[in-house]
Each structure stands twice: as C-alpha cells, then as structure tokens.
Nucleic acid binder design. Structure first.
Lengths: 228, 228
DNA sequence: TTTAAAACATGATATTTGTCAGGTTTTGAG
DNA sequence: CTCAAAACCTGACAAATATCATGTTTTAAA
C-alpha cells in the first residue's frame, strides 16, 4: 500500500495543505481501490462518508432529472478530489459517480479527515477556495445551459475535453465517452448529439474513429461556441 | 447607525457565528446604504472587496452570456449575505447585482471581516456549509436548465418565488420582476415567457395584475414542473 | 399633466430540437 | 470465435422555442 506522504497526486488537490503528520495518519486509514470502466463509485442517495482522491482515470458525476434523464455535471480526473461535500454536511449525496475509464483511487474515511478540517486552517481555506472556484464554474455552466444552443454547447464541450484531458498517442482525447454520455453532458437527446458530431466531422472541425474523438479545428469550434 | 450586535438580520446568515467582540468591531466599520429599485450594487468585473448583508429588499444577481443575454442566477433577499466569495479569492466578480425592489443593505469591508474567517473556525465552517449548500443547489439548477422545458422551468420558478418571497397584503408575490426578468431567470426569450404566463393565467394556475403575480394552483404547477 | 421610453402583448413564421422508427456496426461475455 | 446486447446512425416528422413585426399599455421623467 503506497503512502500518502510520498504520493505526488496530493499536490494537485487540497490534500497538499495537510502536514506530514496528518498525511501519515491518513495514509494508515485510507484504502486503495481499482475501479473498472462502468463501475459505480457511489449512487445518488448514498452516504459517501469520505473523500476519493483520484490517482488515475476518469469518472462522470451525474444527477437524474425529474424527466428521467441523467445529466452529467462533472468529469473528475487524475489529481481531483471527489466528495468533499460529504465532509461538510451529513446529507446523502445528490450525485452519482461512475467510472468512464479504468480508475485508481484512494478513499479516505470522513472521520479521519474531518479533524483536519477543524484543526488545520490551511486545509480548510484550501477547501473553501476550491468550493468558491467550483461555484464560479457552476455559474458559468448555468449560463451556458440556459442561453446557448445545443450546437454551441457541443462545441464548448469538445474544446473543454480537448483542453482538460490527456491525449492518446494518436492525438485523440483519452476519455471513453459514449454518444449518450456526450448528450448527457450537453443536455440534449442522444440523436441530436450524434447528428451534430457528424456535422462537425463533415466540416472537419473534428475527426471521429469509433469512440475516439480528435479535435482538429479549435479556431472554428471556439467561434461556434461563442455563437458567431 | 444601527449596531450589528443588536441586529436580528445576522441570525439568518453566517454572521451569526461571529462573537460579540467581532460584531462590535464589524459594526464600527460597516456602512449602511439605501439602494433604489434599478440601482446597481456591483458590476461584472468589479472588485467587491467586502460582503453585503441584506436588511431588506431583493436584488437580482446575473451574468451576461456570450450570446449577449443576461442570465439571472440568484435572487438575493432579506437576511442573505452577498459577496462571500470576494473574501476567499482576490478575483473580480463574475456577476452583476441590481436591486429589484428598494433595498436596505450593510456593507462590511473585506479587510475587517477576513480576519474573522482566519481566526473564528465557527464562522469559517458556517461559510463552508453555505457554500456546500449553494453548490448542491447549483447542481439542481444545472440539471433543470439542461433537461427541463421552458414551461417546466417557468412553473418551477413561480413555485420558488411563491415559496421564498414575502407576499403583499393582497397575496401577490412581493418582487418587482419585469417579464424580461422572468425570462432571464428561466433562460428564454421574453416573448416566450409572456406567452407561457398568459397560458398559466388562462388555465387559472396564476393570476396577473400588471406586474403583480398571484400563485393560485400550486398542485397543478408542481405537476407541470415535474413534467407530468 | 404630458409624453417619450419602456414594458407588455400577440400573430406569423423560421429554426431548433426532440421523438419515433428503422436500420447498421461495435462490443464484450461465454 | 460467436452472437446477443449495446451503441451508433439516419430519415421523417412533431413539438418547442426563437425571431420578427406590430400594436397597445404602463411608467416615470420633465
């Protein structure tokens, strides 16, 4: 079992604010898990009671709408923390998380890390800063969902994926999303997502090879995302 | 100038976590303002450098989309704090705030209250809890914007307004929103909002008298909001 | 009180998006 | 490898929504 105090992943999230002693204690109680593509990390309504530190892979975090369709709200990747909110309130999760690529994660139980939230102001402030930044990002998503067309949102999403996620050797985005996943990110019907992907392909803004997506023409995609 | 330590409004927000001494100090440096309907509290891109404590009235908090239309993201009312995020990061505001009714607000400068964020863990935790709850709420809004029809969103918004805002003596919701404001909350064209309001009126789910809105049939509005 | 601007309203029409139906291709378990 | 399930794709059509045009009513400033 690897040791948190030697793990470089923590540099990418709030765990970097923990002291060496705190990390040693956390290391002793954390569990490491391998999660295969398609497996569930947690369900809506479940009490998570801890945080996941993502060492590798990607998962989709979604919420079922009253209309019965899943809306993907976040994609969580290597270096991210998942489930911070479970440390702050005692509510059940309003979200579901499913692995999109195979994952390596560590799980830190709430009761061990909550103390640090109370005792280490650096850690608290870092969590607070992240929340503030997530909230700002959420504002942007709300505006985009409310005001942009499906085509604009797809263009923006492709740029986001291309920007934030690793590439395979051949240059495609290394995230195993189905067309339905893409539709559930932008909030549209699967058929609409497929049609627009085909349109972007035809215009040579992107290349498609099975589930692999290659972003080619960022300039034009940016223009479309902005509604020009 | 009224004193914070004697002000009951703070019971409704995170300021309740401050000690008496802290409140006395804050009281000495805060400024009270009257803001008339239509006046701007702050603009997008402005550095707020403090928090507003809303003693009375309502304001709309919005963000301009790339498409050039304003999206209202929050309605802030009596008892709420506005601008907490300015305490946490040093970025300019991504949002604009405009009074919708006449307002009474107090402004607490950042430099005076930031100390309390550092020194008083109760205050920090309360801010953190509020952020977590806002984030959860933002998730819900994203799902609704992405998945619900305009009609569903209007029904949900009417129920929200009816639930969260004071009523006038005659029973109408005491928030002075134009049709354009309503459209900018639900993310649609003004004409569409007008048409749907007329439809709800015809079906007697609501009553309209000028800008006054009376919610009558919550049962049917709930059904519509849920897409039944 | 007057009056120009803003807000409200409605019809006609265009565009976007969803739904349904029918196929083909890909995937992964056995 | 085989083959059923899942994912993908496309067309036709329906529904939702935006846009444009035009007229009326309300509001608030002079």
């Amino acid at each position: 079992m690897s040791k948190c105090e030697q793990c470089i992943i923590r540099q990418f999230n709030s765990l970097k604010a923990l002291t060496k002693d705190e990390l040693v204690r956390i290391s002793a109680c954390k569990t490491s898990k391998t999660i295969k593509k398609g497996e569930v990390l947690f369900e809506e309504g479940e009490h998570i009671n801890g945080v996941f530190c993502i060492k590798d892979g990607v998962c989709k975090v979604s919420k079922m709408s009253e209309n019965g369709r899943d809306q993907i709200i976040h994609l969580i990747k290597k270096g991210d923390l998942l489930g911070e909110r479970s440390l702050i309130n005692d509510e059940a999760s309003n979200l579901k998380a499913v692995a999109v690529n195979d994952m390596e994660v560590c799980f830190i139980p709430k009761e061990e890390i909550v103390r640090d939230l109370e005792k280490n102001p650096n850690f608290t402030m870092d969590i607070l800063k992240n929340m503030a930044s997530s909230l700002k990002e959420a504002d942007n998503v709300i505006v985009d969902m409310a005001q942009k067309t499906v085509k604009q949102r797809l263009a923006a999403t492709l740029l986001y994926l291309n920007d934030k996620f690793p590439k395979r050797e051949n240059g495609s985005i290394d995230v195993h999303l189905t067309r339905e996943d893409v539709a559930n990110i932008i909030g549209t019907a699967t058929e609409s997502a497929i049609r627009l992907l085909a349109e972007f392909k035809k215009k040579e803004f992107i290349k498609l090879k099975g589930k692999e997506i290659f972003v080619i023409d960022t300039t034009n995609l940016k223009q479309i995302a902005q509604g020009l």
